[in-house]
Simulated scan of single mutants.
Amino acid sequence: MKVLVFYVNSFGYEPRTKNLDNAPAPGVGIEIKDAVLAFIQVEELDEEKDVISREKKLVNHLKWVARKNKTQRVILHSFAHLSESKASVLFSQQVFDAAQKRLENAEYEVWQTPFGYFLDLKIDAPGKSLARIWASL
């Protein structure tokens, strides 16, 4: 799994183009302030392990970044451009859903961007230490 995390002053999106035939309706765009924004690519090798081990590794990383940036808000964004390897859509969605549940159980506010859509993005990210972190989990 590859993860590129930004601390953002604000993040907004508007659904633009559906890129998965069976993706559910995306709803309307939103704006979120003071959050950790995680661009996540679940890889094919991740499927050799179980969903729980993958989401636990992801959540631990996101909680660490959130603590460093003094926020309890996390945005999960599927971004299949961090590696040439891609897990199945089903496995990726299961990792995202499990990570969201674990984070919410730890009293984080969590959002997922619409899975299966290209989005127009607005990102306001400050240039400070630990505001941008890449990891291979």
Score class of each variant (00 low, 15 high):
98 A>C: 09
107 E>I: 00
130 L>E: 15
33 K>A: 14
87 A>T: 01
135 A>W: 04
94 Q>M: 08
11 F>H: 06
19 N>Y: 08
106 A>I: 02
25 A>M: 05
125 A>D: 10
101 K>V: 05
95 V>E: 11
25 A>L: 08
107 E>K: 01
5 V>P: 01
41 Q>I: 07
126 P>M: 04
103 L>D: 11
9 N>H: 14
19 N>P: 05
108 Y>T: 08
137 L>P: 13
111 W>F: 14
115 F>S: 10
134 W>L: 03
102 R>V: 00
46 D>E: 14
44 E>F: 01
33 K>G: 15
38 A>K: 03
89 V>R: 14
121 L>Q: 09
59 V>P: 14
73 R>E: 01
127 G>M: 02
10 S>I: 03
53 S>L: 11
70 K>I: 06
29 G>N: 15
57 K>D: 14
70 K>Q: 15
50 D>F: 09
106 A>W: 01
104 E>N: 09
47 E>G: 09
47 E>D: 09
58 L>S: 07
61 H>F: 11
115 F>I: 07
73 R>C: 08
24 P>V: 10
111 W>G: 09
121 L>F: 15
77 H>T: 05
88 S>C: 06
136 S>L: 04
108 Y>A: 03
39 F>C: 05
127 G>Y: 02
127 G>I: 00
120 D>S: 08
27 G>A: 12
28 V>F: 13
22 N>Q: 10
134 W>D: 03
34 D>W: 11
57 K>P: 05
56 K>T: 08
69 N>K: 14
29 G>Q: 03
65 V>R: 10
55 E>W: 00
34 D>I: 04
76 L>I: 03
128 K>I: 07
11 F>C: 06
108 Y>E: 12
94 Q>V: 00
47 E>I: 02
124 D>Y: 02
19 N>F: 09
129 S>T: 13
30 I>Y: 13
133 I>M: 13
74 V>H: 03
110 V>Y: 02
123 I>L: 12
26 P>W: 14
100 Q>S: 09
6 F>H: 11
56 K>Q: 04
81 H>M: 03
12 G>F: 10
114 P>W: 04
80 A>M: 01
17 T>R: 10
29 G>P: 13
84 E>Y: 01
64 W>D: 15
